Amino acid sequence: MLVAAAVCPCPPLLVPEIASGAAGELEAARDACADALGVLAASRPDLLVVVGPEGPAGPAGPAGQDGTGTYPRGSAGSFRGLGVGLGVSLGTTAEGDRAGAAGRGLPQSLAVGAWLLSRTPWADAPVEGLGVGERLARGRCADEGRKLAARAERVALLVLGDGSACRTLKAPGYLDERADGFDAAAARALGAADTAALLALDEHVAYELKAAGRAPWQVLAGAAEGAGLGGRLLYEEAPYGVGYFVAAWS
């Protein structure tokens, strides 16, 4: 059963070593993420799953844009492709996990999640990862969430993903007049822990707006069905023309 969730954005610029001189621009977002992760730690889960966009760095083959990729405890990632020699991992590696953990690297979103977790005092709950394809249909997203919630008596999720990337002329996806409305609806749903509203987010519009968080948020919606969780929106901004949200559910 899902007992808590933290929703965070996942730009690599959250990592100060990557942001370098611009690190201060996302300090408020990092602080909000730390607060949301504190809610996760306080929930004392039996299992923590980090859920984020699979992205181009994920494993080739079955996942693709409309599937999922699983990452066992101890899976490693790095930011070397961004010019920073910083490595991360999903928790500590159990003896039996070493072969699987060495076989694939974490996608960028889960690497950011692993970095966020490394900054938070954490109980010894197993930590795993789930990469979600950008085009995974909402029904399948919800099904994946239900499966996660059923895996242990107390499950917590760290859900990573950004809103639209079309809020300004200089945004990665240029300006799209639909972006403000899409992000406002997502922020309301995340702040209210409104699973129905999250599942109502249009997957095709989300894809056109480059909103990589849509599928992970809908996994969260499936996991939270019937859990009776309340939500708080801790951060809502659009630096660089991209919608970033932080929320805590408990």
Rank of each mutant, 00 (worst) to 15 (best):
Q108C: 12
A94V: 10
V51N: 03
T93G: 00
D180R: 15
G173S: 06
G131P: 03
R138S: 15
G24M: 10
P56N: 07
L40N: 03
L201H: 01
S75V: 10
A224I: 09
R167I: 09
L169F: 11
Y207W: 13
P126L: 00
D66S: 15
V51L: 05
A193G: 08
A238K: 04
T120H: 10
A187H: 04
L199I: 02
L40G: 04
R44M: 09
A63F: 07
T195P: 01
L40D: 01
A19N: 12
A63H: 07
R151H: 04
A36G: 11
A142M: 07
V219W: 00
G181C: 08
R73N: 04
L13T: 15
E236W: 06
G52T: 03
E237R: 15
L106W: 07
D124A: 15
G85F: 11
G213K: 05
G61N: 10
A156L: 02
E208Y: 09
G243R: 08
D183I: 07
A4F: 01
V246K: 06
A125D: 03
G161W: 03
A211G: 09
S250F: 06
P239Y: 03
G161P: 06
P16A: 13
K147H: 11
L234Y: 05
L86Q: 13
A206Y: 01
G191I: 01
S75D: 01
T70N: 08
R232V: 10
G85E: 14
L229N: 05
C33N: 11
A63R: 12
G81N: 11
T70W: 08
E203L: 07
P62V: 12
D66M: 07
P59K: 12
E236C: 14
F245D: 02
A123M: 03
P59L: 12
D176Q: 14
G241K: 05
D124I: 05
R146E: 09
A238C: 12
L160I: 08
D35H: 13
A247N: 06
